[in-house]
């Protein structure tokens, strides 16, 4: 999302409006049934109504909270564990095959296991979100710590730097681009899993709201919820991107 030039920026906005226009056109001409696809103005009205009178706000807070908690837990575990594994060749050799097996496992597949072990509890949702969104950050961190330039390792040896000093001053900054890129991917996974947990385990949030709206053929509410999820994804991604640009200023300074 870099603004290369104003014409491209205006063009990208125009694409959004073109899609909204086509959507509107499809709904007013009756190409698709109103029971399934509302007109965009109705969806907007449902969104405003949901926030002013309904319980869309607490539901949004519920979903965002679930996503953020799981994501923060995953990030913490991912960075600490990833640093330990990335710094040690031996740890990598022993753990890499297991990690490669666990990584492609669809996190939604562990939801039944988590429900069986923990019931339909907030703890279950937190566990599932954290487990699923752990992988991008963990693997990014491992790679970032393992990929320190060999010459810098020699510089550290020549300066007689301690292990923790090396991890903190050379390993971590070296891994930072991979960590932040991983955390951005993790955020997306966390949102997806937060919604799935809500749908499967009836935790109050946007996931349940969307599911109930769909079952009641309230297409306006359904689309309002989907648009809101899109907005949450967009805003969180932009926020993380801004952090990335600030923290990695040195990368763009050439």
């Amino acid at each position: 999302m870099t603004l290369r030039n104003p014409i491209v920026f205006i063009g990208s906005i125009a694409v959004v409006f073109a899609i909204l226009f086509l959507w509107w056109l499809a709904s007013v001409t009756g190409t698709v049934s109103r029971a399934f696809v509302p007109n965009p103005f109705d969806a907007w009205a449902a969104l405003v109504r949901g926030f002013s009178r309904g319980d869309l706000l607490p539901q949004t807070i519920g979903t965002v909270g679930r996503m953020l908690q799981g994501w923060l837990l995953a990030s913490l575990i991912g960075v600490v564990l990833g640093a330990a594994i990335g710094l040690s060749r031996t740890a990598r050799d022993y753990l890499q095959p297991t990690l490669e097996f666990l990584r492609p496992l669809p996190a939604s597949a562990i939801i039944p296991v988590a429900i069986a072990l923990m019931g339909l509890s907030p703890g279950m949702a937190l566990t599932v979100v954290a487990f699923g969104s752990l992988w991008p950050t963990l693997l990014g961190t491992i790679h970032g710590f393992a990929a320190v330039e060999p010459r810098l390792k020699e510089v550290a040896r020549c300066l007689q730097m301690s292990g923790p000093a090396f991890a903190w001053k050379i390993g971590l900054p070296n891994a930072m681009p991979d960590i932040l890129a991983g955390m951005r991917l993790s955020m997306t996974v966390a949102l997806i899993l937060a919604i799935i947990c809500e749908m499967l385990a009836s935790q109050a949030g946007l996931g349940t709201a969307i599911l109930l709206a769909a079952r009641a053929f309230q297409s306006s509410e359904l689309f309002a919820g989907i648009a809101l999820l899109g907005a949450i994804g967009l805003v969180s991604n932009l926020a993380l991107r801004a952090v990335e640009i600030r923290a990695l200023a040195w990368q763009n300074s050439h």
Binding site: R151, E154, V155, R157, C158, Q160, P173, M176, W250, Q251
Partner: peptide, 23 residues
């Protein structure tokens, strides 16, 4: 007995021997 801070090394590949994230 091993590297010491009393001995310093200037490497040929300066680009790799510096920390790119530090000024």
């Amino acid at each position: 007995q091993g590297p010491s801070r009393k001995v310093s090394v200037v490497f040929q590949d300066y680009g790799r021997a510096l920390l790119p994230w530090r000024d």
